[in-house]
């Protein structure tokens, strides 16, 4: 389970997270919703360990392990996966090679044996099929020349291969048409298991029609101001964030 207590963080000396308290029990999917600038992406970067996001207080643990003191690669090995809002293009790096290097790094971190090229290909093909993705994706440079939808599907493919215990989906729905959205949602739903939890960060309710969360949290001005069930998302869609702000 992910446990965040009193988390504060700043970027360029400016406080963004002002005391986050949040628990995502194993097996659950939670959504974080909020207006632009509320700190949603900052929270995901802080949990993944990006440079430039300075934690000034509080704690974040995954299954009892302190995340905040670790390097990004150590967090990944500990089970954290960040699906990027804007997946990065890596020209000159083949997607297959990248996926295998990442998978083997994580397996090594977990004390599992590494996969050779054939074993990896077999696994990757199976996951591609589940995600209705072309094998052609493996041959191309990482995200190079991918459409917005392909980039997001590539994120889900990585997630399906790396099998994290905590997935953070940072506005994965942005720029997706409805078909791609369903495929991405199916990919996340397929991972649902008692030892998997997810934090779905989104501005809109739309994605939550397909990935139905156990809980919805509203993040505003660096704090969680309201928590509820899936119906809260629908309510926000109807009345907007201003109503929450007025109530808070």
């Amino acid at each position: 389970m992910l446990r965040i207590e009193g988390l504060t963080a700043e970027v360029d000396g400016k406080p963004i997270l002002k005391g986050i308290d949040l628990e995502v029990p194993a097996g659950e999917v939670h959504a974080i919703m909020g207006p632009n600038g509320s700190g949603k992406s900052t929270l995901s970067y802080v949990l993944a360990g990006r440079e430039g996001y300075e934690v000034t207080g509080g704690s974040a643990t995954l299954n009892g392990v302190d995340l905040l003191g670790m390097e990004p690669e150590e967090r990944a090995a500990a089970g954290v996966f960040l699906a990027f809002q804007y997946p990065v293009e890596l020209p000159g790096v083949g997607n297959a090679n990248f996926l295998r290097t990442a998978l083997n790094a994580i397996r090594r971190g977990k004390g599992e044996s590494e996969l050779d090229a054939m074993q990896f290909l077999k696994l990757a093909r199976a996951r591609l099929k589940e995600l209705q993705m072309s094998e052609d994706m493996l041959k191309r440079g990482v995200n190079v020349g991918f459409s917005g939808g392909e980039k997001k599907r590539n994120e889900v493919l990585q997630m399906a291969l790396l099998r994290p215990s905590l997935a953070i989906l940072d506005e994965t729905d942005s720029g997706l048409d409805i078909d791609a959205l369903k495929i991405v949602a199916d990919g996340v739903n397929a991972l649902r298991a008692p030892d998997f939890s997810a934090l779905v960060i989104t501005h809109y309710q739309r994605l939550l029609d397909y990935i139905v969360p156990d809980k919805v949290h509203v993040l505003m001005q660096g704090r969680i101001v309201q928590t509820g069930g899936p119906e809260l998302a629908k309510q926000l869609e109807a009345s907007g964030y201003a109503s929450v702000q007025a109530a808070a």
Binding site: R50, E71, A76, P87, A102, L162
Partner: peptide
């Protein structure tokens, strides 16, 4: 950061 967030150690990420 993208490479490291996928579990690839920094030195390896740089060489890639």
């Amino acid at each position: 950061f993208y490479l490291r967030a996928r579990g690839i150690p920094e030195a390896k990420a740089r060489s890639i």
